[in-house]
Amino acid sequence: MGGLVRIGLLINPLAGLGGSRAMKGSDGDALRALASTMSTAEVQRSQDRAMRALQVIAKLPRLTVSTWGGAMGETVCRQLEITAEVLGEPAEAPSSAVDTRLAAAALRDAEVDVLVFAGGDGTARDIYDVVGESLPVLGIPAGVKMHSGVFAVSPEATGELLLHLGKGGLVGLRNQEVRDIDEEAFRHDVVRSRFYGEMQVPGEGRFLQQTKVGGRESQELVAAEIAAWMAEELAPDVTYLIGPGSTTAAIMAELGLDNTLLGVDAVRNNALLGSDLSEQGILELLACESEPARIVVTAIGGQGHIIGRGNQQFTPAVIRRVGVENVIVVAAKSKITALQGRPLLVDSNDPILDKALCGYREVITGYDDRILYLVATYEEGPKQ
């Protein structure tokens, strides 16, 4: 694909909007109705992440872009001064899954070299329904649910891959899984993940996220050991924000407190202060408290993300309020080993904050057991 690169751009304007509000997804009519009441910063999330990816290639001399109208791609191209062919317009605002499928079909028929989309698993599923394995697809991570393997690890990683293509570099093609979960079940702490199929994805291992690995296996005992140690180490008069995951859920179980498996709960002095908190709920809670706070997160199995996948309630505003130094990472050693040397990843949607979170950090891996492990955006990760 050296020389002239023809990119098809498709943005889901609703992608990721439910994350900071603890909605655990962006599918359905409820979010579409809520979108009209959201702030400009919230509504522009997927477009901002697409812009971060495309600005890397905006000045490529032999770049052509085909896209869909308005917030589905045209607006970002205009802001980056990228000349783009607009193939159609969304039928309604905000756009729907029907618009996504229509746009994907038009981009497929335009014979683009690679279809680049900003969204989450729901968007990937809609695109898969239309294009299957007929052309390469690359996802800019912008959703709440991103269990599929078709996404780059960050918007910048998407841009670097496209830049490599545009400069005539050798970029391999691999089949990556498309997966999605039932959002209604997810909102009730039940994970029902479904394999939909595979799409062709251009890329190298350090740029692409791995398919999320589910299941507890023998990690339950390790999680219990981590929980026992954390329960002993919780400092008095400190608010702990316990993030999603089975390992962090074990901490709540050790404390004898109700837990939101896939949400954020607040604890202080072994008492539950709030359950399934959104970004706003967290900030309001912290505004009322003079005591310090800490965030407890765990790694997503297979992917290695500790910030930005499934815990978007921990927004840059929340992390800055708590303090980068007060982010606690817990993970079984088996999860770390499974990364095969890849770093733990952060993708907070704020590149400056991501840099502050990077470096070798302590990871609690058992009872009075900890390791130092690299936390990075994809740039700092070991190259393959």
Rank of each mutant, 00 (worst) to 15 (best):
I251E: 03
V267Y: 06
N259G: 02
A250W: 03
V346Q: 04
L277E: 03
N259W: 00
G341Q: 12
A223D: 13
D265W: 06
C288S: 15
L283V: 11
E254N: 08
M252G: 10
D258G: 09
I295P: 03
E279D: 07
R342S: 13
A266V: 07
D258E: 14
E233W: 02
E217Q: 13
A331D: 06
L262M: 09
L234T: 07
L272Y: 10
R309W: 00
T315P: 02
T239M: 09
V330F: 05
Q280S: 10
D265C: 12
A235D: 13
L273Q: 10
M230K: 03
S218W: 01
D265F: 05
A228T: 08
A287R: 15
Q303W: 09
L221K: 14
I319L: 15
V330T: 12
I300C: 01
V264K: 04
S334G: 02
S218Y: 05
S218G: 12
I295N: 05
R216Q: 11
R320G: 01
S218F: 01
D347Q: 06
Q303A: 15
G304L: 11
N326L: 01
V330G: 05
L277Y: 06
Y240R: 07
S278P: 11
L255P: 08
T337H: 12
V296H: 00
R309Y: 00
M252L: 15
L255R: 04
T298P: 01
Q340F: 07
L286H: 09
V330W: 04
W229H: 13
E254F: 02
S334A: 15
I319G: 08
Y240H: 11
E232K: 14
H305M: 08
I226A: 05
S246L: 05
T260H: 08
S290I: 03
I306P: 07
I328D: 02
E225H: 15
T260Y: 01
S290E: 14
E232V: 07
E289Q: 14
V238T: 15
L262G: 02
L221M: 09
T315K: 02
E233G: 01
A250C: 04
G310C: 05
K335A: 03
G263E: 04
L257Q: 11
R320M: 06
G323K: 08
L255W: 07
R342L: 12
E220W: 05
L345P: 00
E225A: 07
L234K: 10
G256H: 11
T239E: 04
L257H: 08
E254V: 02
A223R: 09
F314G: 07
H305Y: 15
I328P: 04
E233P: 01
Q340C: 11
D237W: 02
V222L: 03
D347S: 12
E325C: 01
G274Q: 07
L221A: 15
I282Q: 04
